[in-house]
Computed example of a mutant assay.
Amino acid sequence: MPRSESAPLPLRSAAETRTVEIVFPDHSNHLGTLFGGQALAWMDKAAFIAASRHARCTVVTARSERIDFRAAVSTGALVELVARVVSTGRTSMEVEVEMHCEDLHSGHAHLATRGRFTMVALDDAGRPAPVPALPG
């Protein structure tokens, strides 16, 4: 039977999101490596998507913490961001985000940056809203 056009896409886990970006020159500093602020923006966006999928409502960033820049990311590299909701509170979610760097020519990939974001769910009036617990 064909899937309805309005049915949600099947996901491995609603609590995990993967996105891919490419580092263009306008994302880079004078050394030809990714600006830290751009990395944080991409990580925050991935955390937002993972938390939104989990809570199925509007979410906002309340905090970013423990951002570890482990390796520089060169212009022309692909970055894959993996964001996972790792814990939930009454109205908040902790989202861990890893940014992996991949050389397009060699295929070599490594962890470049890791961080944690606290996202808060909001109701239609902009007040904190309950979030579902993680399964299991």
Rank of each mutant, 00 (worst) to 15 (best):
E16W: 03
E16V: 15
T17R: 04
E21K: 05
E21Q: 13
I22Q: 03
V23Y: 05
V23M: 12
F24K: 00
P25M: 04
D26V: 00
H27R: 01
H27T: 04
H27Q: 06
H30Q: 08
H30A: 12
L31R: 11
T33H: 12
T33P: 04
F35C: 05
F35G: 02
Q38V: 14
A39L: 02
L40R: 00
W42N: 09
M43L: 10
M43K: 04
D44H: 00
K45H: 15
A46M: 08
A46I: 03
A46R: 01
A47N: 12
A47T: 08
A47I: 10
F48I: 06
F48S: 14
I49A: 08
A50D: 09
A50N: 13
A51S: 03
S52R: 14
R53V: 06
H54C: 10
H54W: 15
A55Q: 00
A55I: 01
A55F: 12
R56A: 14
T58L: 12
V59R: 06
V59M: 04
V60C: 13
T61A: 15
T61E: 15
A62Y: 09
A62G: 13
A62P: 04
S64I: 14
S64M: 14
S64L: 13
R66I: 09
R66S: 15
I67M: 15
F69Y: 12
A71W: 05
A72Q: 14
A72R: 05
A72H: 06
V73P: 07
V73F: 12
S74L: 08
T75D: 07
T75C: 15
A77C: 13
L78M: 09
V79Q: 06
E80I: 05
A83S: 13
A83M: 07
A83F: 12
V85C: 09
V85M: 04
V86D: 07
S87L: 06
S87E: 14
T88L: 10
T88D: 12
S92T: 14
M93C: 08
E96P: 02
E98P: 03
M99E: 06
H100R: 11
H100D: 02
H100E: 08
E102I: 07
E102Q: 13
E102P: 05
H105N: 13
H105C: 10
S106T: 15
S106L: 01
H108M: 07
A109Y: 02
H110C: 11
L111V: 11
A112Y: 02
A112M: 00
A112Q: 03
R116G: 01
R116S: 10
F117S: 07
